[in-house]
């Protein structure tokens, strides 16, 4: 009986019609494909993309070299050297590097930061052309912060009430 049923089904192309039904149903639905890179999918303010080091509006870097991010990083991707800054003796990093090959974008660094300095931006599409570029230096991170400051600030603002 079962075999008979199967025979009839295949003879009448029932399976095919079922499949076509799905195809036709979707043909008239609204498209969800985005034309990347011209179009982009929406992102949460909590999106964890490429890192940045933020600065205060007066240009002073936020990072105080507490090294909590370095300590909390599960992939040991962050390397920090610190010391008193030459001109005013405040505690600053002399080296702040993130190895993007090691980073797993868990966001712990951001969580641990007491001054909201290290953050993860919405940038997720990037590439390296040369060996060694995967290490983000302090200057690169600060530059990231400067470029994306408005977006970063807006995201922190949006998420503030849940933190």
């Amino acid at each position: 009986m079962k075999q008979f049923k199967q025979f009839i089904n295949s003879f009448l192309l029932i399976e095919l019609l079922k499949g076509m039904k799905v195809t036709f149903a979707n043909m008239f639905r609204k498209k969800i494909t985005v034309q990347y890179p011209e179009e982009k999918t929406p992102q949460s303010p909590r999106f964890r993309g490429l890192h940045a080091l933020r600065t205060y509006p007066n240009g002073e870097e936020r990072c105080i070299a507490c090294k909590l991010c370095e300590a909390v990083c599960p992939a040991a991707a962050i390397t920090i050297e610190a010391g008193p800054r030459e001109d005013d003796g405040t505690r600053r990093t002399t080296k702040y590097e993130i190895d993007l090959f090691k980073c797993i974008f868990c966001g712990f660094c951001e969580e641990s930061c007491p001054v909201d300095s290290i953050v993860e931006t919405r940038v997720f599409d990037y590439h390296f052309e040369e060996r060694g570029l995967h290490i983000m230096t302090k200057d690169m991170l600060l530059e990231m912060g400067r470029i994306h400051e408005d977006q970063i600030a807006a995201d922190r603002e949006a998420d503030a009430k849940y933190r």
């Binding site: 070299a65 507490c66 090294k67 370095e70 300590a71 610190a82 010391g83 008193p84 505690r91 600053r92």
Partner: peptide
């Protein structure tokens, strides 16, 4: 050794 290292390192 001011600011050079944290105790846990």
């Amino acid at each position: 050794s001011q600011f050079k290292a944290r105790a846990w390192e």
